[in-house]
């Protein structure tokens, strides 16, 4: 474990040196990533000029909703910074046979493939997320209880774990399909479902979507559970989704590991 931590820190250091070598590009990446985020925030502000709440009686008025958005920013920025850049490279590695050189290393392939690149510019959004969360919470009529603040980082970690497991499964799909340029698209579209409060998925179509995105692909637990803990009143009933998120994170990590191993066993080298 210590060895892996040491190797990860070496990767992280190398990526930092690389990012700092191309400082202008790094700054530009931060700016564009912040631009994307600001655009979404502007959209939500626009939406709130037409309505006081997202869904009648859901409690997602402006400030709680922005706390929700902030949570999404924090979770996604961690995933984008630490796991997504490596997974994106995998597509080309499978196609060109570059994966072979990873498989012969005396290290765990999943570790190497999912953690060898860190994109520091993605953390910019997370920092803004923290600021936005602080702003939104300071405007709540009732501040969140201490237990909510204690649980929040744990649930954010669970959200990150669920998304990481999904990335690993998509990576496995890449290995099986031979090429998966849609990996990133698929990721974007799938995580799209987690961007809004679960309550909006109601009615004859919404109900099944909510069930699938909670119990089959637990994408709705990623942002919803930590955001609810911080932005909605805490009650005895809050423990069920919290337990669900922790359980889902654990199950997803194990399943993704198994799927990834099975996919690697089927990998046929593309290089000569």
């Amino acid at each position: 474990m210590r060895r892996y931590l040491g190797i990860f820190l070496t990767f992280a250091r190398a990526c930092l040196v690389r990012d700092m070598t191309f400082r202008a590009n790094f700054l530009l990446e931060c700016v564009t990533s912040l631009g994307w985020m600001s655009m979404n925030l502007a959209f939500y502000l626009l939406v709130f000029t037409f309505t006081p709440e997202i869904g009648r009686g859901t409690g997602w008025t402006r400030e709680p909703f922005f706390a929700f958005v902030a949570t999404g920013l924090i979770v996604n920025s961690i995933v984008q910074a630490f796991f997504m850049p490596s997974a994106e490279e995998l597509t080309e590695m499978v196609r060109s046979g570059g994966l072979d050189s990873v498989l012969v290393q005396p290290l765990d392939a999943q570790f190497l493939l999912s953690l060898h690149r860190v994109e520091y510019s993605s953390l910019a959004n997370g920092l803004v997320g923290v600021g936005l969360l602080g702003w939104a919470v300071s405007r709540f009529t009732a501040p969140p209880p201490a237990i909510a603040w204690l649980l929040y980082p744990l649930l954010v970690a669970c959200g990150v774990a669920i998304l990481y497991a999904l990335i690993i499964m998509l990576a496995a799909a890449t290995i099986l399909l031979g090429r998966n340029q849609s990996l990133y698209d698929f990721w974007f579209y799938l995580t799209n479902f987690s961007r809004y409060p679960a309550e909006i998925y109601a009615g004859p179509w919404g109900g099944p979507i909510r069930m699938i995105c909670t119990f089959v692909i637990p994408i709705l637990l990623v942002v919803n559970v930590p955001a609810r803990v911080i932005a909605q009143p805490f009650s005895a009933g809050s423990w069920t989704p919290i337990g669900g998120a922790v359980l889902a994170a654990a199950v997803m990590l194990v399943v993704s590991r198994l799927v990834f191993q099975a996919a690697l066993a089927k990998y046929r080298s593309a290089s000569s």
Binding site: I54, G55, L177, S182, D185, Y189, N192, F193, Y196, I200
Partner: peptide
């Protein structure tokens, strides 16, 4: 690379679904 292509095409419809639900919720609350 048909598999990848078909997957990519089908995925494009997913964001619409969330937008529809978002606006339904907005209209429901106003």
């Amino acid at each position: 690379y048909r598999g990848d292509f078909i997957l990519g095409t089908a995925m494009r419809f997913l964001p619409i679904v969330t937008q529809v639900f978002l606006w339904t919720a907005v209209f429901g609350a106003t």
